[in-house]
Simulated scan of single mutants.
Amino acid sequence: MKTRAAVLRGISTARPYTESRPVEVEELTLGAPREGEVLVRVAAASLCHSDLSVVNGDRRRPLPMALGHEAVGVVQETAPGVRRVSPGDHVAVVFVPSCGFCRDCAAGRPALCAQAAAANGSGALLHGPSLLTDAAGRTVHHQLGVSAFAEYAVVAQESLVPIPRDVPFSVASMFGCAVLTGAGAVINTAAVRPGQSVVIHGLGGVGLSAVLGARAAGAYPVVVVDPVEEKRQLALQLGATHAFAPQEAAEAVRELTGGGAEVSVEAVGSPKVIADCLTAVARGGTVVSVGLPAPDRVLEVPALAFAGEGKSLLGSYMGDAVPRRDIPRFLDLWRAGLMPVERMHTGTLPLSDINGAMEELASGRAIRQVIDTSGLLTDRPAAA
């Protein structure tokens, strides 16, 4: 079948993206789902900084690639062997299609699935090579087993989590990456307890989701650090108790927490910020690194921070989430008003405006933009 999709053919750092247009919407041929795979009509796809990192070369991926990895849609067709979903189901799409059998999956850490990592790294799907080809018959790779900036996508059934039909598409689209990663870093990785002090550096979609996770976990105080005033104000509306610009944060946090926070979440993707978090966290405290620095960046920290001060530095990929467990419970928190993720929705754009959306994200103005890929999206952000 044919599908319109946003395709990246070469990395680009030329700004603005609205003029350089590194991503073009093309008509591709999408192969039929194989055993264990599902055809999904994509209803909404959120734009994440990880997508931008592929465009600017910070995350090297095989090209050409059909972009998009955070989405929600409606099941159209299931191939033999599919038992998790049925046609008509609304589904959140997860960018790690865990196999369920490898060492990490068996240990309850599906985000680290080795088979999924291999498939995602090569631009394939969990059950086989790419199903996308361009007008010349050349292979186009999948991004993280999804390629959601498109009208249709074929994905492994392991990438799908059924969701209730009454959840708005624009809300549900943020649960497959931003919420799993940010809230999961607080709730799963750091295992924050009520009353613990938490500092969150970086207020993109992941950092703001970490704020929601800290609020739901009962943390206090919840301090946020970001250079953008508008993002700090939004974080306060979402449940943060204090907000500071980076240059004033260190001293203010020490005063608020009596010497240092118990948990610090780094959602910037900066080795310097990770190191600063480790210096500023309290003795016995924990730093959770959830941002994605460029692969060539190196972290240098005082070795004595660990054995000498009892501090911990934890990596968190996809928030150490178990998607089939965590997406339903996070949606329950959304229903209860404890995770108002719709407040992060800063714009709805058609697929044809993908480069404009990339520019808004790169500028720091946008938090979570939702791409209306196939005309199914009728809800709009509250501020619109």
Rank of each mutant, 00 (worst) to 15 (best):
R9N: 02
G182M: 07
R84S: 14
P129R: 04
C48L: 06
L349R: 08
R232C: 09
S130E: 08
A124I: 00
A336K: 14
E77L: 14
V228S: 03
R325P: 02
R84V: 02
R15Q: 13
L349E: 04
G284K: 08
P350H: 11
R254G: 05
S289G: 10
C99L: 08
C102A: 05
E230V: 13
V225P: 10
E35R: 15
G184S: 10
A6W: 04
S197A: 15
S122R: 15
P271L: 12
G184H: 12
V225F: 08
L256H: 01
T13G: 06
G137C: 12
P16E: 07
F175R: 08
F95W: 15
P227Q: 08
L112A: 12
G202P: 08
V288M: 04
T181C: 09
S46I: 06
Y152E: 03
V74W: 02
V199I: 13
V55Q: 07
L278H: 09
S197R: 09
G145T: 06
A382Y: 11
I187P: 00
Q115P: 00
A148E: 01
H49G: 14
E26L: 15
P246Q: 07
A6N: 04
C113K: 07
D166V: 05
P194A: 10
L208E: 00
G31I: 10
R21M: 07
E360Q: 15
R83Q: 10
S170T: 10
L304D: 10
T257W: 08
V75W: 05
V322Y: 09
V265Y: 09
G195V: 07
A117D: 11
V192P: 03
A153E: 03
G137H: 11
D89C: 00
A245S: 12
E359P: 03
V82A: 06
A307V: 14
F169N: 08
M318P: 00
T279D: 14
Q369N: 15
S270P: 02
D104G: 00
P323M: 14
S316Y: 02
G145R: 10
R59Q: 14
